[in-house]
Structure formats: C-alpha cells, structure tokens
Design a protein around this nucleic acid. Structure first.
Lengths: 106, 106
DNA sequence: TTGACATATCTAGAATTATAGATATAATAG
DNA sequence: CTATTATATCTATAATTCTAGATATGTCAA
C-alpha cells in the first residue's frame, strides 16, 4: 500500500533533486538555451539536456543521470532522446495529480 | 534551502509513518476509544496515545515513539501529555499549509 | 518510598541511499 | 571503421535511515 506515493516522497527527499524539479519550471531562466539538437516540428518543449542540469547542479555525470532517472520513475519528469542527447522536462500532468492527491488524502 | 520541505518529505517516505498519519484522520474508526486519561474540559480532541498506535502499526515501542517524534518534528503531528500518556493528533493547520505549498510551488 | 507502567532516549547492527569513478552503450563526425 | 561526445549503468565505499533491545525518565498507586 502507498508504494507509488512513497516513491514520489523519496524522490523529493533530496535537495538536489528538488532543486532540479523547481529549476525545470523555468528552463529559459535557469539553463542555457536548449533544443539545439531537437529537430524542427518535433519540439519537446521546455526540456533541458542532462549536461546542462549536471553543470547547474554541480554534481557528477553519473549522479545526474541517476537522479533524473529517479525523478522520472517517480513520474515527476519525462524524457526524450534526440541523437546523443537526452532531454528532460517536468511531467506537469503527473505533478498536478500528485499535488491534488496531497490536498485530498494527506 | 528547502530544509523544512525535505524534512516533511522524509517523514512521509516511510509506509508505517504514512499509515499512522492517515489513520489519525479518523481516530474513532481506527483506534480503540481514547481520552480515558484526559481530564474533562481539557480535551485534546481526536488524539490517540502511543500505545494504541504502536499496537495498530505492529511495531516496537521504541520505533513507535521515534516515528511519532519524526512526524511531530516535521510539523505533521502535535502532542500533549496527560499523566503517563502522551496523546498525538494531526496538526491539520500545518498539513493544510504544506499541501497548499505543494500545489503552488512543486 | 517502592514498584509498575507509559513513553522517551540511547546504542549498535542491518538496510537503504548517496556518490564518485570506471565501464558500457549509442549516436555522430570524419 | 575509428574517435569523440553524451548519457546510462555498474561497482564499491561513505553516509544516512531503520529497527530492536536496553536503559532512562516521568507518573501513578500502594
């Protein structure tokens, strides 16, 4: 019981991961210009590549990749790959669902 | 930054603690009758003593005490002592504040 | 006061999570 | 194909959290 909820709480229980999630609310403000590698027409909007997130967070490459995986598995982020680059962005639908669940059931 | 938020997420990242918090939404339904030790007039309503929570959760006494302390320090519970008994209940004001913060800032 | 009970705190080992570095994979350029 | 770059996964150690058992504290009853 509550496995999914707890997975989300655990994902949010780390300052770096929480910061990443909040930075991604305003990628344009918090990261260098993105999407250079995303083809026209297939815009995975407001997404940021792993390297930019790693740099901003000041963590190693393997930790960045791992943290983003944790956030994605918890349903807080989603990703798309373009060439060598993996872009991540917030999964706003899931985040909203989760926040609403908190209001109702916490 | 985010220390308080993270303290709450950590407190919620454990199934037993999460269950305790939810059981305390309906103490009358989930626990034996309480308040036998609370004097008339000074009713700390909808509160449950440590022993009842420990029993329901199926955990040791020291873990029960510790978990309740974690939930209280995170601001999710509040307590009052009557004689030998410590009663805990939800801190609804803080829980509401937290849930609203999630909606706005997560 | 003494003894019994409810709860809190301490202590130590087990389990989980964090983290860096090494290696693997996948894509691109040449 | 080979070299390079971006990211993912693996491995091992450090740090944190979990948990039970032992001990301490506070309260009541005799």
């Amino acid at each position: 019981m509550y496995e999914r909820e707890i997975e989300v709480f655990k994902a949010l229980s780390n300052e770096t991961r929480l910061k990443i999630l909040k930075w991604l609310k305003e990628p344009e403000k918090n990261f260098p210009p993105q999407g250079l590698h995303i083809p026209e027409g297939d815009s995975f909007d407001h997404s940021v590549c792993v390297g930019s997130i790693q740099e901003k967070a000041g963590i190693s490459q393997s930790v960045a990749s791992h943290y983003l995986d944790i956030l994605q598995k918890a349903g807080l982020l989603e990703s798309a790959r373009y060439g060598k680059w993996t872009y991540y962005r917030r999964n706003e639908a899931n985040i909203k669902k989760f926040a609403e669940m908190m209001q109702k059931d916490l």
